[in-house]
């Protein structure tokens, strides 16, 4: 397959278009890599280190200078700070408050509340708050004008 690279000036403009006859395993893994970055981050639970795939993460929260990574039913700790993780995560991870990053692919729906904030209901039923000042970033990331 011929691969072409074109430079853009903004992260929001980044996109990859794959033209192929069918979605083969190679193409699916390329899509996964492009959408979710290098694939995962190292997390800790009960002093054991695990590799957590980015596709499993629901949200990441910083509490008292500690960083917690939440999957469907588990909570892990990360040695990285929130801003450091922000760099490593894929395009579907977006900051929704000073202390939280959410995986947009795990949001079931959002609802606006008076005052400008939004409440996001995740696929596991958990609810997280999207601060007003971050709604613009989410819209930009989702390609909404």
């Amino acid at each position: 397959m011929r691969v072409r690279f074109e430079q853009v000036d903004e992260k929001e403009k980044e996109q990859a278009l794959i033209r192929a006859v069918e979605k083969t395993a190679d193409i699916l893994s390329a899509m996964d890599l492009l959408e979710n970055g290098s694939g995962g981050i190292q997390v800790i639970k009960d002093r054991n280190t695990f590799f957590c795939k980015l596709t499993q993460i629901y949200y990441i929260e910083s509490v008292d200078k500690r960083t917690y990574v939440y999957t469907k039913g588990e909570c892990y700790e990360s040695r990285d700070r929130l801003y450091e993780l922000e760099e490593k995560l894929g395009m579907y991870y977006v900051r929704i408050s000073k202390s939280m990053i959410v995986n947009l692919r795990k949001i079931r729906n959002v609802s606006a509340e008076p005052g400008g904030r939004m409440v996001a209901v995740l696929l596991n039923g958990e609810r997280v708050i999207i601060s007003r000042s971050y709604v613009k970033d989410i819209k930009r990331r989702l390609g909404i004008q």
């Binding site: 947009l104 692919r105 949001i107 959002v110 606006a112 709604v135 989410i138 989702l142 909404i144």
Partner: peptide, 19 residues
């Protein structure tokens, strides 16, 4: 804000993971 809510929800529909 409700208009933003609608736009965000329809954009999320296209990328949501299946659980």
């Amino acid at each position: 804000d409700k208009q933003d809510e609608k736009k965000i929800n329809s954009a999320l529909d296209t990328i949501r993971d299946e659980e």
